[in-house]
Design a protein around this nucleic acid. Structure first.
Lengths: 217, 217
DNA sequence: CCACTATGTAATCATCGATTACATAGTGGG
DNA sequence: CCCACTATGTAATCGATGATTACATAGTGG
């Protein structure tokens, strides 16, 4: 946590930060503070983010026109991390069949959601800011979706699927994975959620059940 | 919208409301106002509910210790309506097989969620108030879940299912339906959501795909 | 070296949830 | 029948928040 230590906030030579003016990229610091706030389970408030950046309550509004804009930037950052992890997981399980890749995708998705619940919520809910449709977040997400569509198309081409309605399968798969993740976050898996790891095993089982259901016997 | 019209707020004879003291069940009026606020897509605030009840900003706190308590009451009311509709739908499709009843349940669930998005969100999210575990909402929900478990047990007893892991099937089914509903609410079904009714047909298709996946061929 | 702009501060506003002191309206016991 | 008592509502107030505005300061480039 690089906080300026000197009593006088800004020294003469600003440590050659490369970044622009006074603070040395306050924008980034605010986004990180907000992400950390979320991870701690706290509400994200502009003031609290400013407080953690040791900056006045009005300063953030030089970088974001309003709270929603900050939240959108936070969501985009979280989405970047999410996507990076998914793609890393996919590149680790190289060839295999398309259904195995589909499974790996779903598993990585679920794991990230379980382990970064607050960030997953920010990404997915669209309640935190006015999802202007065209944001980087939407584009990023669309590319992930396209990835799953390709896997399903490959599976169909290899005659692995019972049904030819790929769109339906794809929506169902998304709903299943998204729903499981959200059930966890929304507290709908209370009873057997006590033991850590059990939920991830159940997630895996649910995913396998789905794949078995769509695969040709 | 029964708002008192007289310039003097409270007349001598309070119109024989049967209900207790001054206002004539302010509690109920506040809950209804909050539900309507949600249905309009607005944030629920105690003050706005008070405003709509033509009452001072502090009055609601005579009936609810804090905002969360109001939200919890609102959620319980929404849950009552939800459950009533599910059970009505089930009683309309009487006998049939257990899987047909399972399907009817899922369809009623999805329909209600699509048509009452804000209320569904209040029920399900658990972000609106401090879900104290023991609320009526939790109990109500548990009973609905038990219903689906019974249907699956019946189906298994009649040898209709491919897998014997009923818990897994049940969680997967919940995740699928919950996930589809939430995808709709969270704006994850953009493209083909333009035409009304198309989404409900897709919901039906997804449900059928799932049932076909778990049913013995 | 000096305008110019990017960035941050200080002060201020409206709204909100919440608390407190006070007012009023029914109820029930003597 | 009246009078305490309690349930209910009001008014005033507090602290926190998002947001705006006027002002200060720090780098940049002609």
């Amino acid at each position: 946590m690089p906080v300026r230590q000197s009593s006088k906030p800004r020294a003469r030579r600003p440590a050659a930060e490369a970044r622009p003016y006074h603070h040395g990229d306050l924008r980034r610091v605010l986004i990180d503070a907000a992400l950390q706030l979320a991870a701690e389970g706290a509400e994200i408030s502009v003031r609290e983010a400013a407080r953690r950046a040791t900056v006045s309550p009005g300063a953030p509004f030089r970088h974001f026109p309003n709270r929603d804009a900050l939240m959108a930037a936070v969501a985009e950052e979280a989405q970047r991390r999410f996507r990076a992890e998914i793609e890393a997981a996919l590149s680790e399980s190289p060839a295999a069949g398309p259904l195995a890749r589909f499974r790996a995708f779903g598993l990585a998705y679920l794991r990230w959601a379980m382990r970064n619940p607050a960030h997953f919520e920010i990404i997915s809910t669209g309640r935190y800011f006015a999802h202007g449709g065209s944001s980087e977040l939407t584009r990023d997400n669309a590319e992930l979706i396209a990835l799953t569509e390709q896997m399903l198309a490959d599976a169909a081409a290899q005659g692995l699927l019972r049904s030819a309605d790929l769109k339906r399968i794809q929506i169902a798969g998304r709903a299943l994975v998204y729903g499981f993740a959200r059930m966890k976050l929304d507290g709908h898996l209370p009873r057997w959620g006590v033991e850590e790891g059990e939920i991830e095993r159940m997630a895996e089982g649910v995913l396998d059940l789905f794949i078995a259901g769509i695969a040709k016997p």
